[in-house]
């Protein structure tokens, strides 16, 4: 039997949804359904992927999230907003009724998450290898990083600066610079530095940093 994968989007820029839809065409090894392309009932699913942050002012969304959790064997927060808050951490109100800017939270504020994949958006190319790990049962060590990420509610270039560079455990390997989607990381005097205005709090640099990913796992999984 094929693995059933169900995707629900909680809102946001839809970048993650587009990434999932792009990957959908190549996902032959599983039975993939997305709420974006049909009004599917929520049934028992092997894997549920949630993209977008949760708005705490929307009770029906919160209920939906709880229902998804109940019916999922594995729940994956897909993308930075769902897993660590991402750019919605900067949301300001102004709409009516006025949402408070802390109203948007990563989904682990409401439910337990099994894997959190940061990325703004995560590339479609990473979805198949990730799902296949559940089919074959061969889990790469790197999946531990995504497991540990579920325990944090924020992850960004700011955290990388605090935990790694200011703690003087940076080794100048350049992983963060190659991983930043906005070019917020750059080298100053042989060490990475953050251009704060450019950081969208996606957390990609943090999970890619050899030291930071090691810290994540040691802190939260062992």
């Amino acid at each position: 039997m094929k693995l059933s994968v169900f995707h629900v989007d909680m809102g946001g820029c839809e970048g993650c949804s587009v990434a999932l839809l792009r990957a959908m065409a190549t996902m032959e090894t599983c039975d993939f359904k997305s709420r974006l392309v049909g009004d599917f009932e929520i049934e028992k699913n092997d894997i549920v992927m949630v993209s977008g942050p949760i708005c705490l002012n929307e009770p029906e969304k919160i209920e939906l999230l709880k229902e998804l959790r109940e019916k999922a064997s594995v729940l994956i927060a897909f993308g930075s907003c769902a897993s660590v808050g991402g750019i919605t951490r900067y949301c300001r109100g102004g709409q009516q009724p006025k949402p408070h800017h802390m109203t948007f939270q990563p989904i682990n504020a409401i439910i337990d998450v099994d894997y959190a994949i940061p990325g703004c958006p995560p590339s479609p190319r990473m979805i198949n290898p990730f799902i296949n790990a559940f089919i074959t049962g061969k889990q790469s060590n790197y999946m531990q990083i995504f497991k540990a990420t579920t325990k944090v509610k924020k992850l960004s270039g700011f955290d990388l600066i605090d935990d790694i560079i200011l703690q003087n455990i940076c080794i100048s390997c350049g992983a963060c610079i190659l991983s930043c989607p906005t070019g917020a990381m750059h080298m100053v005097g042989g060490k990475p530095d953050l251009i704060v205005e450019k950081c969208i709090r996606c957390g990609t640099c943090y999970v890619r940093c050899p030291r930071a990913s090691q810290l994540l796992i040691r802190r939260y999984l062992k």
């Binding site: 790197y142 995504f146 390997c173 190659l178 991983s179 890619r208």
Partner: peptide, 11 residues
Amino acid sequence: FLRQMKTFPLL
């Protein structure tokens, strides 16, 4: 980190 990038390309 390159192997991580190769296994799970996030960007």
